[in-house]
Amino acid sequence: MTPRGKVLLLLLGVFLLALPWVVNPYILSVATLILYLAYTGQAWNVMMGFAGQLSLGHSLYVGVGAYASAALFVHYGIGPWAGVVMSIALCVALGAAIGFLAFRFGISGVYFALLTIAFCEFTRIGFDHLQWTGGSGGLFLKVAQRDQIDLANFRGPPAMYYYAILFLCALALLGCYYLLKSKAGYYWQAIRENEEAAQALGINTFRWKMLAVVISSAMTAVSGVFFAFYYNNLFPEQIFHISRSIEIILGPIIGGVGTLFGPILGAAVLTIVGDGITELLGAMGWEIPGIKQVFYGIVMLLVIMFLPHGIWPPLARKLGLGR
């Protein structure tokens, strides 16, 4: 990263830290959503952007992570700090199982993507019928006391959630930065670019692809725990839905797959402009259901046509920010 890039990153950090003090609750909720999508996109990016394994069922890990921690909290009063450990363990086990099935039997490319969709879909149907977590009727957490911070149970005002997800984002960015620079990063990219050549250079591709899936699913599990405690209600139909998986990957694709800042930039652009358009049309008296999705489609088309590597790489080059 260039000096100019570092200064801008620092400024962005300061801006984000100061945000809750200067904006209204609505803007803060939008910012929280952006950071949530940025973090989850970053997690997905480890698998697809770094290691080249396309998951179209990432909401599986969000959902299982969310449900595991929420159910433990609702049924046994077990707080999210213990819950997040359980969520990560469950999601890693799931990811490892899917990865093992796929990589052991040489399933790759679109077939791998289909496998991830299949797992996500049957988990959704399973949760529809799992009475312990409320089935299709949903699982609800008691709404947080908005005025006091209860860190042990991760209950508190919106600003607390905002700072929590901001912290996660920063951690993920730093973690991915080091991953990409490490041996794992080199090996993943080699596998992404040409698996056969990677193997000929002594890389045990099975093992390294498994590592990517495990790290990605663990990161996404945390995002599920955040989702549960922030939104307080979980429905299988919503959280596991394929449109959720798509929502997760739109950010990184538009921002730049495989880049560090792509997921963050993509999440910001999509959410701000998407919500902006909805708001704008609302203010003009037009309530058009699904207009956001139409907009997502248009942005996707434009980016794929004109910026096939996403917005971040050309932007970073123009502004001299480094990678």
Binding site: Q189, A190, R192, E193, N194, E196, A197, A198, A200, G258
Partner: peptide
């Protein structure tokens, strides 16, 4: 490899 297989993006 006879048909070269560079890691094109790197």
């Amino acid at each position: 490899f006879q048909i070269v297989k560079p890691f094109a993006g790197l």
